[in-house]
Write a protein that binds this DNA or RNA. Structure first.
Lengths: 197, 197
DNA sequence: CCTACCGATCGGTAGG
DNA sequence: CCTACCGATCGGTAGG
């Protein structure tokens, strides 16, 4: 009768729950600062149970990180560069990324940026390939801006400078602050695009 | 006769050795990924000995992080803004920071950027105060640029964008690569300063 | 996915 | 700063 609620949630997506909650915890406390027990407890699992879904902690990290980056790439690729001006295209990308990053929905983006370095071997390489794909998307957006005369440089180096400014928003963003994610995105676009005064 | 070399180094600076080696390890593996045993072993100490110098691991982190940031601030403050143009002043600052960051001498700069969040309570606040000082230095340099018409914005937000690009250089810099720290610094300056075409 | 557990490691300490 | 150690925690596993 007084039976504690068991894992009565659709067990198909327990794995996804683990990924989502691990993303949040890794983000807050870092990979090594988070224990598998933390992860388990946060979705009412027993200490050993996550290992039913992931054979090791590294494998969970890999899932979190590639899952997040793949979602991010998919959403950016869904934006059509042809139907709008280079500036609008770029702005839409920055807005999408910023909102995804700062909202709860795609929490793993910020840690994709930093925690992947705890991966080793093949998982690490797989991640780096994805990361390259992601960077290429931004590089091509910058090149369109350049072709339109809106930025002076569009190479790997300037792309890294820009992506650093973009990705680190999550480290200082204050949801209680006066700026919304959208406003921050637009400020960044203005900052990157040379003023034509 | 076959006595292993003991701690025959000037014991006055053992503490500094600990800070320097901890900085390197925290940088490589993160705060939680580094054990006090790692730190001890890297300078031929016994596992418990670091606790003679620092009462806890957090205290060591605090020393590493404030030590690095203070050194950084000191070196930036030594640059005289009056004796040179706003652009030269800014360039000198970026060069100094970049070289300090990528060289071995001031290794702790990059982790000052990220690992401070594992601090709590008063040490955390002390660090944040220092960090504000550091940011103000850059903000004032940007304001000089703005007054000279070389950048269009110079507020907290644009300062953060810029500092993100600057600080994250250390995460992608490849000492085997084709670019020297000085070249990277100059590219960043060019990227930030609006082209006056 | 739970129960029950192991072996290893880790931050930290006592006592010199 | 070393020796010797403790208590707690952690990643992971067996067996169901």
């Amino acid at each position: 009768m007084a039976r504690p609620r068991k894992a009565d949630i659709n067990s198909d997506n327990r794995r996804e729950h683990l990924i989502a909650t691990a993303a949040r915890l890794f983000l807050q406390k870092g990979y090594h600062g988070t224990t598998m027990r933390d992860v388990a407890a946060s979705i009412n699992m027993q200490p050993g149970s996550p290992f039913y879904h992931f054979s090791s902690k590294q494998e969970l990290l890999f899932a979190v990180v590639t899952d997040g980056l793949r979602t991010c790439i998919d959403r950016l690729m869904a934006i059509d560069p042809e139907s709008q001006s280079p500036l609008d295209y770029f702005r839409t990308m920055v807005r999408t990324y910023t909102v995804d990053m700062l909202d709860e929905r795609v929490v793993s983006i910020p840690l994709v940026v930093d925690e992947w370095r705890h991966l080793e071997g093949e998982p690490r390489q797989t991640f780096l390939d994805l990361r390259r794909q992601h960077e290429d998307l931004w590089l091509s957006a910058l090149q369109r801006l350049q072709a339109a005369g809106l930025v002076s440089k569009a190479n790997r180096l300037s792309c890294r400078f820009f992506l650093s400014a973009l990705t680190r928003i999550s480290t200082w963003y204050d949801s209680q602050g006066s700026l919304t994610p959208l406003q921050i995105a637009d400020e960044l676009v203005d900052w990157v695009v040379s003023p034509r005064t």
